[in-house]
């Protein structure tokens, strides 16, 4: 009989280091929780508050529904026009941001910068800015949606452009076509399915985003929601939340259907 062979996954030194790391992580989390400034008596009260709120929202004030038709149309229009404007602006950005179609390094850097700026600022912040610039209302909302979407759309579009078949473009170049003709005739037909898919996907996201734009005064159903909350009209709030849920479900279904067809 030989003695059973010992095997350890970690050396004692490693084990000690791992324990220390865990303690350190726990300390950081504890410090962060402490910094939250939680009022425990409020937390304890939360279940009662939830019950109370739901009680006041229910039943929803169905009679208020006709007044929501116009804000709802506005919301869909903000999302749709915003997406359309974003796609229009994204085409040149994407052509500059794709390595195989960019005219030069300067244009490439500029396009990448536009993408980062667009994507790093949230739609609500864009909306705050445009409410100041063009005043409250749907126009501000549409511009905010467009600004936020440009980065997303042009990034995915540029990736699509980078994956095209070079041979088809080469053949169009061999006929003596100009740069613009190359894009229109050799590149665009190849990326059209990608473009359609990205548009529909972003439109779906924008429907959801534009439901909250009214909170900062940029139009749509969020505006009605904000008014109802400030006026403590809880049964109206309940109705608006139900309507928003319905719109989002419908837009998701529509988007899934359209994307299935866009090939």
């Amino acid at each position: 009989m030989t003695a059973p062979r010992a095997w350890r996954r970690f050396t004692p030194g490693q084990t000690a280091a791992r324990t220390l790391a865990r303690l350190g992580l726990a300390a950081v989390v504890a410090w962060m929780l402490a910094r939250l400034g939680v009022r425990w008596e409020w937390v304890a009260d939360a279940p009662t508050q939830i019950g109370d709120l739901l009680g006041r929202m229910f039943p929803p004030e169905w009679a208020f529904a006709p007044a929501l038709v116009d804000p709802l149309i506005q919301t869909v229009n903000i999302a749709t026009l915003g997406t359309a404007l974003a796609v229009f602006l994204s085409l040149p950005v994407a052509f500059c941001a794709a390595l195989n179609t960019t005219p030069n390094r300067g244009a490439y850097a500029l396009a990448r910068f536009v993408m980062v700026v667009s994507r790093s600022v949230d739609t609500l912040i864009w909306a705050l800015i445009f409410v100041i610039v063009v005043g409250p209302g749907s126009l501000a909302g549409m511009l905010a949606v467009a600004m936020r979407s440009v980065g997303f759309v042009s990034k995915l579009f540029a990736e699509g452009i980078e994956e095209i078949d070079r041979g088809q473009v080469e053949a169009v170049a061999a006929t003596g076509a100009t740069r613009g003709q190359l894009l229109v005739y050799g590149v665009l037909p190849q990326v059209r399915p990608v473009l359609a898919g990205v548009c529909i996907y972003r439109w779906d996201i924008n429907i959801r985003e534009s439901t909250v734009l009214g909170l900062v005064g940029a139009g749509g159903i969020g505006f009605a929601l904000n008014e109802a909350i400030l006026g403590l009209e809880w049964s109206r709030v309940g109705l608006i939340l139900v309507v928003i849920l319905g719109v989002v479900i419908v837009s998701e279904a529509a988007s899934a259907y359209l994307r299935g067809r866009a090939t």
Partner: peptide
């Protein structure tokens, strides 16, 4: 380039 017509191995038609 207009004066030179090119024909390719993989045809290189714009497929769509």
């Amino acid at each position: 380039r207009r004066k030179m017509g090119m024909i390719f191995q993989e045809f290189n038609l714009v497929e769509r």
